[in-house]
């Protein structure tokens, strides 16, 4: 066990956990931030995607000991009022079916647009390939990203 000081969604947190604990479980079990989802535990599905200093990472394989001073953003902190351009576009295109993967999809999409404000279809496909949607909402995800790109 070790103590870690974290900056998550602009707030400071302190946790006392095994240094190998993935950030996902620190968020979900210790800090009650359950927006990032568990889907596979091996960085294959993207449901757990968060931002670490604006880069989209799979929190299920990121040990808490590697976070250091970097800031963490989760879906809960992506915007104050759920009005990030990507979130708004997700609602406009009514993307979700079961909704379980969508927090991860949104976090990947937001990071993509942060790095590339006007991605091509091909760039969207490549960037989003790490996020599985079992309900198959990929067509809407692509359209929503294009809308968000136009509005941000």
């Amino acid at each position: 066990m070790a103590t870690f000081h974290l900056n998550i969604n602009g707030k400071k947190h302190q946790v006392d956990v095994d240094p190998n604990t993935p950030v996902l479980w620190v968020l979900r079990d210790h800090l009650n931030l359950v927006g990032a989802k568990y889907g596979c535990g091996v960085a294959q599905c993207g449901a757990c995607t968060i931002h670490v200093d604006d880069v989209a990472l799979r929190s299920c394989i990121l040990p808490i000991s590697q976070v250091g001073n970097q800031t963490i953003t989760t879906i809960e902190g992506l915007s104050q009022n759920g009005d990030h351009p990507v979130q708004k576009a997700w609602l406009k295109h009514d993307v979700a079916q079961c909704g379980y993967c969508q927090a991860g999809q949104i976090m990947s999409a937001a990071a993509l647009l942060e790095a590339n404000s006007n991605p091509t279809d091909e760039e969207i496909r490549t960037a989003m390939t790490g996020n599985i949607c079992r309900c198959g909402t990929y067509v809407r995800i692509k359209e929503a990203i294009k809308t968000a790109a136009a509005n941000s």
């Binding site: 879906i75 759920g82 909704g99």
Partner: peptide, 21 residues
Amino acid sequence: QKNVEGPKIVTGKPLFGLDFK
């Protein structure tokens, strides 16, 4: 009509069984 739970889904609200505490 849009999914009535859309706003909760896109903001990561605890809706699912795995989120229950």
